[in-house]
């Protein structure tokens, strides 16, 4: 009986110590999380807003059901939409695309495009990032009706050499959104 009690006692202490430590760690982290939460959230918002503002040259933005509406001097001039393609070379490619409103003839133009997330090959496929290459800027001003959305030399869209699959994935995603 005494032996069993002694075992139970040491076992209890061995369990109790890590449990208390884990609880104090959890408390400490929860406390830090509470303190930093507001600033981190506002950092995140600022980061996203800066990206969006860059895309539309500082026009006003308003959140809408499918993304953002873009306003200049009070009238809506376009929209920003989020799209994802899984036809890239590796993983998904997330894009933000700013488009003008549909004109009377049913045409839409690209204002700008940004890649927000991708896992394409560094040094080859990452030329879709504006920080790495100017490739993504060629879509500015391209429209649903007046652009041949196949890759060069047949079409109007330049290919990143060595990254045909990545180029095609991004191009097709933009073309499909324009055609909608």
């Amino acid at each position: 009986m005494t032996i069993r009690m002694a075992i139970n006692k040491t076992l209890f202490r061995k369990i109790l110590k890590p449990t208390l430590l884990a609880l104090s760690c959890a408390f400490f982290l929860a406390f830090t999380h509470q303190i930093t939460k507001k600033t981190i959230e506002s950092n995140q918002r600022q980061y996203e807003e800066r990206l969006l503002r860059e895309m539309v040259n500082g026009a006003e933005l308003e959140k809408s059901s499918s993304g953002y509406s873009v306003f200049r001097e009070g009238t809506q001039i376009g929209t920003i939409e989020q799209l994802t393609t899984s036809h890239g070379y590796n993983g998904k490619i997330d894009l933000l695309i700013a488009l003008t409103l549909t004109s009377l003839t049913g045409d839409r133009e690209v204002i700008s495009v940004r890649v927000t997330h991708h896992e394409e090959t560094p040094g080859i496929g990452d030329k879709i990032e504006p920080e790495v290459s100017t490739w993504i800027h060629q879509f500015v001003g391209k429209s649903a009706h007046h652009t041949n959305w196949t890759l060069s030399p047949e079409g109007d869209i330049d290919i990143i050499s060595g990254a045909t699959i990545t180029s095609r994935a991004v191009t097709n995603a933009i073309a499909e959104t324009l055609a909608e």
Binding site: P18, L21, N43
Partner: peptide, 16 residues
């Protein structure tokens, strides 16, 4: 546990 706690702290500080 101790290491993970400090890593999480570092992660939060970086975001901050």
């Amino acid at each position: 546990l101790v290491i993970a706690t400090f890593v999480t702290l570092a992660d939060l500080s970086l975001q901050y």
